[in-house]
Amino acid sequence: MINLHSLTLSCEYQPFVNPHDQSIDGYEALARFYLPNGQAVAPNLVFEQLHESSVALAAVEYQAKAFQLQHAPREQRLFINVDPHAVNGPYTEKLLTLLSGYQHITVEIIENTCISDADLANQLFRQFKEANINVALDDIGAPHSLLSVDLMLNVDFLKFDRYWLTLIEQHQGIQLLAALVEFAKRTGKQTILEGIETEAHLAFAKSIGVDFVQGFLFKPWFIRPSGTQALCLG
């Protein structure tokens, strides 16, 4: 069990890269947490524990987004992740107000693994679109995720999970990905392939026609703010 009260909060910005000319077209902001001795704590462990308290989860989610916006690279497209469970309540309007003040924001939402999560994601999508905030559907194709046709039809960006890179040698899997990329092009959406770690991955991304890529191949371009702040649990 992690002592959440002892943690400090920071973030990391990972670039979206054009696979053809390797120009940067924006960043995804990811939460980072540290113990008092400076040791990093895996974010998934922190959020798993936060899910035990809806109040603490909502408070930390809002604090993380405020920190990410404050330290974000200026004049760049910025993607942030939003957990539907964290804004299903009184923090929703507060978060919408915060995000609406940032010109180049896109919210990534995940449907997760059950119907109730998918319903929450669809509800959250409608609220962000009503606030004129772009929305990306994250983790498409991940083994644990569901896929909502409504979200696929209406979001602005499709983000494909790194799992697709395990299917490079499987004809049917690649044909499905190619069809989804073509669907995005025909409907005015942009596509991002996650998990790019090698030049072979990058070459595959070029061949499949995605708009942008993301991954540890571009780690030298990751950005981290110099400061941290104490974690507030509400």
Rank of each mutant, 00 (worst) to 15 (best):
F16S: 07
L9H: 05
R224P: 00
C11D: 05
L180K: 06
V213D: 07
E111Q: 10
L177K: 03
R224G: 03
L69G: 07
I110K: 08
L69E: 06
D156T: 03
I2E: 10
T92M: 14
E93K: 14
P15N: 11
A29T: 13
D138H: 02
F216D: 13
L124Y: 08
L165E: 04
I2F: 04
F218W: 03
D150F: 10
Q14N: 10
N122A: 02
L233W: 13
F183S: 08
E93A: 15
S116N: 12
D156F: 03
R74E: 15
D119Q: 13
H85D: 05
T113I: 09
L176R: 04
Q76W: 03
R224F: 01
W164K: 06
Q49E: 14
L151F: 01
G188C: 04
S10L: 01
V149D: 05
K129T: 10
I174D: 07
E93L: 06
V46F: 00
P143W: 01
I140D: 00
E199N: 00
V149H: 08
N154M: 02
L151W: 02
G89L: 11
H51I: 07
D83Q: 12
P19L: 05
P43L: 04
K185F: 12
T187H: 01
S23Y: 02
A86L: 11
L202E: 04
D21G: 07
A59R: 12
Q175H: 14
G215Q: 05
V87I: 15
P15V: 09
H104L: 08
N112C: 10
N88P: 01
N112A: 13
L233D: 09
V41E: 00
P43Y: 02
N3G: 06
N44A: 14
F128R: 03
F216C: 07
R74F: 09
I80P: 07
R126Q: 06
I174C: 14
I105W: 03
G227D: 04
L30Q: 05
S148E: 01
G26A: 09
A29V: 11
F128V: 04
F128M: 04
T166K: 11
E169N: 15
S53N: 14
E93S: 14
D119A: 00
H171E: 15
F218P: 09
A230T: 15
